[in-house]
Computed example of a mutant assay.
Amino acid sequence: MSRIDKASYTGQPWRIHEFTDDFRIEDAWAFRTPGAGPHDFPAILAAMREAGGLAQQSWLARALFATRWKLGALLGWDKPSTGVGARVTSLRDRLPEDLRDAPRGLDTAAMPLKGVYELDTECARELGNKTVHTVMHLGWARGAESDYELRMTVLVNTNGTFGKLYMAAIAPFRYLVIYPALTRQWERAWRDRNASATG
């Protein structure tokens, strides 16, 4: 995984740009998927799902998430009244007409971000609570070398000063624990998928 310039996201012809003008780019990363071709985005999504979610992360990542959910429960950050469809409108309600019938992607109890849409080269998932309305966008693009790569962009619309302070407070945990853990899981999922395909 490597952190990439935000232009690597804004410069792509992805549909997400059409309805997220009020969100700002928080993070943009690229993940290594050696040997990938232009039509392998569904394959990497399937490999990532098969690799499992939070339950397969490191103990430290699991502990951080557990602490966050505990705090959210105690302080009321994650009440239904603060989430998508209540405090914030779902991106599903902003979709252009031609995207409204697109698949949303698989939602599970283990995945707190819910599907907005899933296409052949990109997908988006969202989460809303008292702190932010956030979107995780995954896109498929040609890398610096010839192979295609997975790119993840995190978009946020913070809930006032409190939301901005919250995002600043969790930044070290994202960079030092969460993103490295995601990298190991997702890049291993691609390697395992390739090994199975060639074995």
Rank of each mutant, 00 (worst) to 15 (best):
R100V: 03
Y179T: 14
P80F: 08
T131R: 11
F31L: 13
V84N: 04
Q185K: 14
G160T: 02
A189V: 03
L64N: 10
W14R: 03
G76T: 01
A7F: 00
G139D: 03
A109H: 10
Q185V: 06
P13Q: 05
L176S: 13
A109Q: 12
K164G: 03
G53F: 06
G163Q: 05
T20I: 09
N194R: 15
T89D: 09
E149S: 12
S2E: 11
Q12E: 11
P103V: 08
R191I: 06
F162G: 10
P180M: 03
A109K: 14
T89P: 06
G160L: 00
A124I: 04
G199Q: 02
G76L: 02
L99N: 02
A102L: 08
M111G: 03
S146E: 12
R92P: 11
E50S: 13
Q12K: 12
A47V: 07
E18C: 01
L119D: 04
E122I: 02
A66V: 00
K6C: 01
D93A: 15
G160K: 10
L99M: 15
G143L: 01
E187M: 05
W186Y: 10
G53K: 04
A181S: 12
T161I: 04
T20C: 15
R94N: 14
N194L: 10
N159A: 12
A181L: 00
G11D: 08
D93P: 04
L176M: 12
G199I: 00
